[in-house]
């Protein structure tokens, strides 16, 4: 079974908080509902348009194979079952940094993931971040709700 690190519904609060800098890419600010995580994510809005207020289901998983085995190299199209089938937007990236943030009273842990330059910042309670490890390769899966 796939060991999903993070699976929650998120709601887009803001789009491009620092102004639109890139044509095809927008930065979304979102809040996860269950774990109350702060999320900042760069999304290629050309292929997957996003508007403020929309809700998505977002997941982070180390593999797309349903049996939990690691993805090796090439991901063939139309291959049997895959986790990606259920989602509309899938990215592949690397967890490169974790840091703590105690500016807002309670301590939060931040995980940073880069999907070939598109950034994800996941800020949440330390207890929910135990599965994340440095240098993990992760898939980000998104589906409109």
């Amino acid at each position: 079974m796939v060991d999903v690190f993070f699976d929650d519904a998120i709601k887009v609060d803001r789009l491009d908080p620092d102004g639109k800098k890139f044509d095809k890419v927008s930065r979304i600010e979102a809040q996860s509902e269950e774990y109350a995580m702060n999320i900042q994510l760069d999304v290629n809005t050309e292929v997957y348009p996003i508007r403020v207020g929309e809700k998505f289901r977002m997941a982070l998983a180390p593999t797309l194979n349903l049996d939990g085995s690691a993805v090796t190299g090439y991901i063939p199209e139309g291959k049997s079952k895959s986790l990606a089938d259920k989602f509309e937007y899938v990215m592949h990236g690397l967890l490169y940094k974790m840091s703590e943030d105690d500016s807002s009273g309670s301590v939060k842990v931040i995980a940073y993931i880069s999907f070939g330059g598109l950034q994800l910042m996941l800020k949440g309670d330390p207890i929910h971040m135990g599965k994340f490890k440095l240098d993990q390769r992760l898939f980000l899966l998104m589906r409109k709700m």
């Binding site: 292929v47 190299g73 991901i75 330059g117």
Partner: peptide, 17 residues
Amino acid sequence: LPTPALVKPIELWTGKQ
């Protein structure tokens, strides 16, 4: 060739890759 940064809806690689 690295794994594409964008797997779905279409395979896309970024310039950074």
